[in-house]
Write a protein that binds this DNA or RNA. Structure first.
Lengths: 249, 249
DNA sequence: GCGAATAATTGAGTTAAGTCAACTACTCAA
DNA sequence: TTGAGTAGTTGACTTAACTCAATTATTCGC
């Protein structure tokens, strides 16, 4: 079984102890300025938002928030990598997303009522995130309605991405789900091959695709033996995505 | 197999022949005025949008748009019911969503680049939809940035809903996915039981939940024989949702 | 209201994927 | 550098879900 420990286990260190760095430090925030949610903000408004925010360092496997916790903040990943997951009552852990540097997450909670996190978030390796108060961002939007336009585009694209994720999951067999997942990792729409890096350890990719790690391993071994992918740790080389697409379906 | 015909078959009538009703007709548009995307609009702005739109009548199984078609419009359901689905190259049809009167769909395409429909849309019964030009809506937002606030809320909630749909699909067994789906159909958070109506024919609920119709039928028969649901056509009576939740997981 | 078409159910047999277990290969921290 | 703890792989076996087929219900257009 993938990762079946409860949120209290070592896998997710129990307490969020944020290490604040001085607020005025800029390193790592360049990407923030070019993010869809923020790039239209005037410099002093973005500075205000950053001042209202806290910089957090998270250790490997450290828990950032729990599902159902009141959501007073949303987050921007400065460095490292996080994953979003849910725990059900039997302790099964289902991975829903992985978040890379330059991405925001939990930003949709700004408009939820009541605002509660829909899942757990934990660092997959040591990471740094900016913790942005929902209220500060909302105030900014209230004062500057014109900022909502750029945010709108971001939210619409988020909904499109989630729809696409859902679409993959309606594929009924594990092999084809995995193939679809790999194709989506390729840049430029799978027109040409290339090397992709799995954004999660294999056992968590398996969880994300609703299959057991053993099944994931066997499918990948099979694709490998058919010359469809070459595997090097978490890096996969796909020479002919079209052939991969053909054998699925 | 659920519905495996191609889009050209009788199941999805090939040509969209819209029957326009006079633009000034108001009946059925009350719900539009209270929709999150439109309720903050001043009356004359909404009237303008309606004037720019066309009212379409769709027959049973009639196709509204195809995946990958350029998306110049989005839609509001006045009456009837539609479903969103995708077709893959082997002709397998995977249902992704059903849309009820009072709902919008394809509205996220406003911000896609290039704007193309991500799936097929067809009427599940004879239906009436309002076909809203993306450009008209965008112009309205450009002229009135304050309207973006309400739209933002709608888009954020859409993303939350899609995330939740994705979450169900990461449940690894068919029975528990079905139970989760039923629980979500219940109003007031499954605190009390009640009757729910399947928003899709059973074979399409099965498709939506990535299982075969036979599997759906067998699971439902089993739940029925255990006294967990009573089934009457597309209406299900769930007396004790907590017990249903307990047996899942 | 009739009849054809589609949807739903049920049974029997098959297969994909899960489970359990053993083992190997990493990773990370002391 | 080492060793403990995870992650990943592989084999053997089991089971949930799929497939195919037959039958019964239901729906919808005429």
């Amino acid at each position: 079984m993938a990762v079946t420990q409860s949120a209290e286990s070592r896998y997710t260190k129990p307490v969020l102890v944020a290490i604040n760095k001085p607020l005025d430090e800029e390193d790592g925030l360049e990407a923030l300025r070019s993010h869809a949610l923020f790039r239209s903000l005037k410099a002093h408004d973005l500075d205000y938002l950053i001042q209202q925010s806290r910089r957090l360092r998270l250790g490997h496997h450290q828990l950032l928030y729990r599902q159902d916790m009141p959501a007073h903040h949303f987050f921007f990943v400065i460095s490292g990598r996080l994953r979003l997951y849910r725990l059900d009552s039997s302790g099964i852990d289902r991975t829903l997303d992985s978040i890379a540097p330059g991405d925001c997450f939990a930003e949709v909670m700004i408009y939820a009522d009541p605002p509660r996190y829909a899942c757990y978030a934990e660092a997959l390796k040591s990471s740094e995130v900016l913790m942005i108060p929902v209220k500060a961002y909302q105030d900014l939007l209230d004062r500057h309605p014109e900022y909502a336009q750029a945010a709108l585009r971001h939210y619409a694209m988020r909904a499109v991405t989630r729809f696409h994720d859902l679409e993959i999951m309606t594929v009924q067999n594990a092999r084809d789900r995995l193939i679809r997942y790999l194709i989506d990792l390729l840049p430029n729409g799978a027109l040409e091959g290339g090397e992709v890096e799995l954004p999660l350890p294999k056992c968590l990719v398996a969880s994300r695709l609703a299959m057991q790690p053993e099944t994931f391993s066997r499918i990948l071994a099979d694709l490998k033996s058919n010359g469809l992918v070459r595997v090097n740790r978490s890096k996969l080389f796909i020479s002919d995505p079209q052939r991969l697409i053909e054998i699925s379906q």
